[in-house]
Nucleic acid binder design. Structure first.
Lengths: 167, 167
DNA sequence: GATAATGTTGATCTGATTAGTCGGGATTAT
DNA sequence: ATAATCCCGACTAATCAGATCAACATTATC
């Protein structure tokens, strides 16, 4: 039972999000940016990135053009694309409890309220990921409600690992 | 790129948490509860559960006794054990970004602010998992700040899957 | 029209992780 | 003694994450 973190940002989501921020920040706005260029600027393996961008295209978040003047650009204004949108395309639903959607999860007996717990956890995560847009990220300014979470210095500290096996 | 959810509650964490709630709800309080009994009441594979409880014991969250009158009981009052405590023992740190702790994560160039995003996401999740104790769950009443998240009916609805591959 | 730059698709690969299972040993109340 | 219980480490099967590759389709420019 090692190393199975809860908020797990996969390499795919990390790459896809950073690529989208590159597109949102392209100058002039809306210019097609080559996969190559994104990969180089963000240090992402090119082939892997191309796969991710293809998924984003099928989900209508980006457009692409082939050939000499090809590249990728946003299909929708950057203000309308949230981190949650990208996460759901790349990795599926934000939350699952042991392979199930939390609503469908019915823990027996006295453990019943764990269901509400996971729904609350999902709501908390949504309150960040559905509020932050790639326009916010490209501009470097998070929405006030999200930025407020960062005011507490405690948010920036790591917790110790309580598991003696992993020390 | 299928099915790699963000808030991913592993079977192990689900089982471990439900087992802890059983211990918190044991009557009379503090009585040793047999692994067998927990497994039956919560429909958990016994051998797997025993593994999880052994990890919780090594992390000093439960105690155990062998033999005829053996079983498991909480090492600490239920009000002092949070969901985050259990999650960290079973699955490690709450958050990782692509194999890294968010503080150590340094996305290049214009994607820099994605780092603050993930720290905010972690803070949001902590605000739930570090506040809810197994005493809360056993009693069926979540702390006010967490329960407030459940007031919005939107928290209870599932979002559609935007990925046409997975439909 | 040839060419070179680009995106598209599907297949494949490797190592890790998940969710278990199993056997045998140690401990303890009756 | 003995039966009930926990303890420990090894084992496994299926899946997944994270790429990588070859071959093909499209397009702007010369």
């Amino acid at each position: 039972m090692r190393h199975n973190e809860r908020v797990r940002i996969s390499a795919g989501l990390d790459y896809a999000l950073r690529a989208m921020v590159e597109l949102a920040a392209a100058i002039p706005a809306g210019r097609p940016v080559k996969g190559d260029e994104i990969a180089a600027r963000q240090a992402i393996p090119y082939r892997f990135l191309a796969q991710l961008l293809a998924e984003l295209r099928r989900a209508q978040l980006v457009c692409s053009g082939r050939g000499y003047a090809g590249g990728y650009w946003l299909a929708v204004p950057a203000e309308q694309i949230t981190v949650a949108d990208i996460a759901r395309v790349i990795d599926g639903p934000l939350t699952d409890v042991h392979g199930m959607s939390p609503e469908l999860f019915g823990p027996p007996g006295v453990a019943g309220p764990t269901r509400e717990l996971w729904i609350a956890a999902r709501a908390a995560l949504r309150s960040v990921l559905e509020q932050v847009t790639i326009a916010d990220l490209a501009a470097g300014t998070l929405p006030p409600a999200v930025a407020a979470l960062l005011d507490d210095p405690d948010a920036w500290t790591r917790r110790p690992d309580p598991n003696p096996q992993r020390l």
